[in-house]
Nucleic acid binder design. Sequence first.
DNA 1: GGCTATAGTTCTAAAATAGAACTGTCAAAC
DNA 2: GTTTGACAGTTCTATTTTAGAACTATAGCC
Lengths: 155, 155
Amino acid sequence: MKWDTLDEEPCSLSRTVAVVGDRWTLLILRECFLRVRRFEAFQSSLQITRHLLSERLKKLVRFGILRRVPYSESPKRYEYILTQKGLDLYPIIMAMVHWGDTHMGDERGRPLLHEHKSCGKLFDPVMVCSECGEVLHAKQVHVHAGPGRRGADAA
Amino acid sequence: MKWDTLDEEPCSLSRTVAVVGDRWTLLILRECFLRVRRFEAFQSSLQITRHLLSERLKKLVRFGILRRVPYSESPKRYEYILTQKGLDLYPIIMAMVHWGDTHMGDERGRPLLHEHKSCGKLFDPVMVCSECGEVLHAKQVHVHAGPGRRGADAA
DNA sequence: GGCTATAGTTCTAAAATAGAACTGTCAAAC
DNA sequence: GTTTGACAGTTCTATTTTAGAACTATAGCC
């Protein structure tokens, strides 16, 4: 497939996959949510090759998910900060973490626990319907073609 | 990185990424949720090479996300059905679709609309805290090391 | 001048993917 | 009873990506 035009497909999942749908990008984003911001920090915590890290950061900046912000004038040094568009990826990351906790855990228990500052409790992320607030299950969802649909594609 | 041992890392995101963290796998799962079940159907709707499709389906079966169920005895024919573990990936897929709808849309509008059968309305998926039910934002979450944590890894 | 820190770039070898052709089984059509 | 077609893969070579290591550039500190 021509992955470079995937972000123009009439399918929102394809468009998302085009941007964040590879292993390294997802791991980089995890680090971002853990407040990692600098090239060397990403590199040493992920053991990613410097070449790929450089490419992926550029791509995330290009798509407006990270901002490259100078933190030192001489020498010129930059750090990478999540934009609002990037912060909005949080549900994707949390959904993946939760699935891993549930289905890929081992006897030692969870690697990380999440505390919700607003209520002070350890929590799991739950996906609900924006209209009625009930927990969502795949089988209770029916899909309709929307205005942006064309041809035999899906979404 | 040795992606074949990623599912043993002390990080739930890594473990999830090991299983579903590549472009084709995510697109295959989208098709699964749209009720696609057969080899030829995946192949023609995704334009994935037969070789890769075969590999990915095997992997998803190996990890217990799909079940390979015979639907014809002679000739032997199988279809691929989501297990409960696979159905539980729904929040990940929906979170990605929603992000794509929000941030990668074009002037034509959404490709697909989702109706919640329980309440009959078109909805967006929303991620909330399991304890207090409030909408989750990255900045309101604090991360603690859990029992399965080891060394300098993250999750 | 020599050492370190940071943020990259460049190079070659190994692995993954694309694209097309091929295999095998059986049913139905001729 | 031979041919055609559907289905579910496997095999092959060429291209693209990634891994791994070394190299470059700027500047502060001793």
